[in-house]
């Protein structure tokens, strides 16, 4: 499996070139953002960072302060489906090109990926050390009043591993597996 190297910020062309099943490694800035941050953006608050071309990471990391510097102790993905009501708006209004999370997202997000040129990147859930190893620096934090897990952390990633599971062409691995497994389990019910 060839690994595609990505550098943030992503252009629309790069985001649109990715397809379900692609294995990628991301180098550059990642911004964490999960439930409370998305809720705030939805209510019209201005993001504290420029999200144009950015990748948002659904992650509430374990952070420890050593002296005056933050160190990331664990940083795997959190469940993305909770952001389903909001994610497409963040694509439309702020121009993000990628979302990293786990579990996939629904039709609104898939539609947003097609309309605005964005891609969903699946990290391995629970694998907080594999992920944290690829976070080489913590460069800042915003919205710390939301609490550490919900804050927007400015992470620097080196070859952060993901699989593309939703693309800008309407493809969704999650949709496929859900349809097949629903059929299989319904057949077992009889």
């Amino acid at each position: 499996m060839a690994v595609i190297q990505l550098q943030t910020p992503l252009t629309e062309a790069v985001a649109r070139s990715l397809k379900v099943g692609d294995t990628v490694e991301i180098t550059g800035r990642l911004y964490t953002g999960r439930d409370a941050a998305h809720h705030r953006l939805h209510h019209g608050e201005k993001p504290p960072v420029d999200l144009g071309g950015a990748i948002i990471y659904h992650c509430g990391p374990v952070m420890v302060k050593e002296g005056d510097r933050w160190v990331c102790r664990a940083a795997g993905p959190t469940t993305s489906s909770r952001e389903e009501p909001y994610q497409w708006e963040v694509m439309r209004d702020h121009g993000i090109r990628g979302v990293i999370g786990k579990g996939g997202m629904g039709p609104k997000t898939l539609d947003g990926c097609q309309k605005y040129g964005c891609v969903y990147l699946h990290a391995i859930g629970g694998a907080a050390q594999v992920c944290a190893e690829r976070i080489t620096r913590v460069d800042g934090v915003d919205w710390m009043d939301l609490g550490s897990p919900e804050a927007i952390w400015h992470l620097w990633a080196e070859r952060f591993p993901c699989i593309v599971t939703m693309d800008s062409h309407g493809g969704s691995l999650h949709k496929e597996v859900l349809a097949a497994s629903t059929k299989a389990i319904e057949a077992m019910r009889a």
Binding site: P61, R73, A74, A128, Q129
Partner: peptide
């Protein structure tokens, strides 16, 4: 990795 580094298996 979690065992070797004595760090949380999962951030949650």
């Amino acid at each position: 990795l979690a065992k070797d580094k004595s760090q949380p298996l999962c951030q949650d």
